[in-house]
Design a protein around this nucleic acid. Structure first.
Length: 572
DNA sequence: CTAGGGTTAG
């Protein structure tokens, strides 16, 4: 059958179905061969493209329609606005909005609802708000779009206020709105509202919707403790991939070992892991620094062709770096064709933490030459890499250039990093002056960096000062007492040392022992400093340590073992 | 011929 013999209605339906099957070429030929193309057939073609992700084609078809003298209607406008949003083109969206106003077709809830989403997703929440206020026929979609828009830009609380207003105005509540409201609640971490929303979901029976249940699971893991989330997960009558991914992602943040166990269980339930799953599981391996396991997960990702997913690849760079296998980080990095800022930052951080400061700066410059705009996280990583590699002056140069050359204003974290850079290098006075003159209130991490450096460089004067500041902010932080007492010990200020130890004992503030672990063949072995009973091979370990220290001393390196004794006496 | 939802990373 050829196009001319089809009725316009049949041809339109056919175009719609062909687009849904992604047979765009056939749909287009059918459209072109239609003897008479009215606004409905043009719109069918545009919306066929728009609702199947071909936004450029939708926009181009819209332009041809205008050029051929056919006026759009509200259906056309809402389809083409969908594509403007899909192309992330605020300009195109504003232009189409303007045309709609000129043609007098900007009314109607459908057009307004797309406009809301368009403005909200470009962060122009004020424009969205203006459209919303002028709407005479707000639907539940309008409310939901606004709540989602506010949540996306980090104003979850405003979103929840709108939700409350919506309920009061008796707008029907559906599962869409329910899940986005719960999401808004997770984003601000409010457990009380979260429980109220759970009750509301139960009352309205929307809890049986999987998206609602999944956002409740996410809410429990972000607003309450992980055991609540686990309980909810196990009690869910139905679970889909998103359910498993959400649970694994939340375990990755709290207990990476359990995340790996759940990943295995997911496989035994015949759920196929997605890129989401792999990025969480790779991150879990990174947290545990277990290289062998990480390589196996990498292999599993390759077998399922998820290693090309950018988030997975970025997680792999981080994982290899944290496992000390920076060469593999580089390999993964080199294979990524479309790198984003996180890709570059992951490698810079990886180099920095492995002591490759020069390489970190090289990669940074490579990124700048390729035209990517850096942000505060990246500049902090570069300065931190310089700090850890002892490239003090280079780090200071990046700091002084960041505002004028890279258009990145330094934030408090970056000032903290520079304080650390100076203090670590023994330039304690300069570090202190930096704290005093910076445009931010120093927090306990900044004073902590100074205090740590004072310990390293045995500076009693500034150590006492930094510790005092931290006591003012965190009176019960036993770590501070330990650090300061060690500084006193180093300065032979034994009276002060004894006083600090007395405070520590009086406080009775028992600190958890810092554990470390190492992967030996297929096993992970944990150990703590001073622990002489955790392994049958511990005698051999200490013998080897002694030999290393002797070797270091022979080579002219001063070993600093007396700190170890002070650090762990009194802290259990 | 038209609109809104749940899970990932530095």
């Amino acid at each position: 059958m050829t196009a001319p013999s089809l009725s316009p209605v049949t041809a339109t339906n056919l175009i719609k179905n062909l687009c849904r099957q992604r047979s765009f070429a056939v749909a287009r030929r059918l459209f072109v061969e239609m003897p008479h193309r009215d606004v409905v057939s043009w719109t069918a073609m545009i919306s066929g493209y728009a609702s199947n992700g071909c936004h450029e084609d939708a926009l181009a078809t819209f332009c041809r329609m205008i050029a051929s003298g056919v006026s759009p209607n509200r259906y056309t406008i809402s389809s083409v606005l969908t594509s403007c949003r899909g192309l992330q083109s605020c300009c195109a969206g504003v232009a189409v909005h303007g045309m709609a106003v000129r043609w007098g077709i900007d009314n109607g809830a459908y057009v307004d609802n797309v406009l809301l989403d368009l403005y909200a997703s470009f962060g122009c929440i004020g424009d969205a708000e203006a459209v919303f206020k002028n709407m005479t026929d707000r639907t539940v979609v309008s409310w939901t779009t606004m709540i989602a828009g506010y949540t996306r830009i980090g104003h979850g609380y405003t979103g929840l206020l709108l939700f409350k207003q919506m309920i009061q105005e008796c707008t029907e509540l559906n599962a869409f709105t329910c899940s986005i409201a719960i999401h808004a609640c997770s984003s601000i971490g409010c457990a009380t509202i979260g429980q109220q929303l759970h009750a509301l979901a139960l009352k309205t029976r929307h809890d049986s919707s999987l998206p609602v249940a999944n956002s409740l699971l996410n809410m429990y893991s972000r607003c309450m403790n992980i055991s609540e989330a686990k309980k909810f997960f196990h009690e869910m009558p139905r679970k889909d991939l998103i359910t498993w991914n959400a649970m694994i992602a939340s375990l990755e943040r709290s207990n990476s070992h359990e995340a790996l166990l759940l990943f295995l269980e997911m496989g035994s339930q015949n759920m196929q892991p997605t890129s989401f799953t792999f990025s969480s599981v790779v991150a879990a391996c990174a947290n545990l620094a277990i290289l062998n396991c990480g390589r196996q997960v990498h292999g599993a990702a390759i077998r399922r062709d998820h290693q090309r997913n950018l988030q997975v690849a970025n997680a792999l760079i981080d994982m290899y770096a944290k496992c000390g296998s920076i060469g593999n980080s580089r390999k993964v990095f080199d294979e990524i064709t479309e790198k984003d800022l996180v890709t570059w930052t992951s490698l810079v951080i990886g180099c920095g933490m492995n002591g490759y400061g020069a390489e970190a700066t090289e990669i940074f410059h490579e990124m700048i030459s390729s035209g990517v705009q850096p942000d505060q996280v990246l500049l902090m990583s570069v300065i931190s890499a310089c700090s850890h590699a002892g490239l003090v002056d280079q780090g200071l140069r990046y700091f002084s250039l960041m505002d004028i050359q890279y258009n990145v204003p330094p934030n408090r974290e970056i000032y903290g990093c520079v304080v650390d850079l100076l203090a670590r290098a023994g330039r304690i006075t300069e570090a202190y002056q930096m704290i005093e003159t910076m445009p931010f209130e120093p927090d306990e991490t900044i004073w902590g960096a100074l205090l740590g450096a004072c310990k390293m460089h045995k500076n009693v004067y500034f150590g006492r000062l930094a510790a005092q500041k931290i006591f003012d902010m965190w009176p019960n932080e036993s770590k501070t007492y330990v650090l300061l007492s060690n500084i006193y010990a180093a300065g032979r200020a034994w009276g002060d040392f004894a006083e600090m130890r007395r405070c520590l004992r009086e406080q009775g503030n028992k600190k958890e022992v810092g554990m470390s672990w190492i992967e030996v063949r297929d096993e992970v072995r944990g150990f703590a400093s001073g622990d002489r009973s955790s392994s049958p091979h511990i005698v051999l370990v200490y013998q080897t340590l002694e030999e290393l220290i002797q070797q270091m001393n022979q080579d002219g390196c001063e070993s600093d073992s007396h700190w170890v004794l002070h650090d762990f006496s009194g802290v259990t």
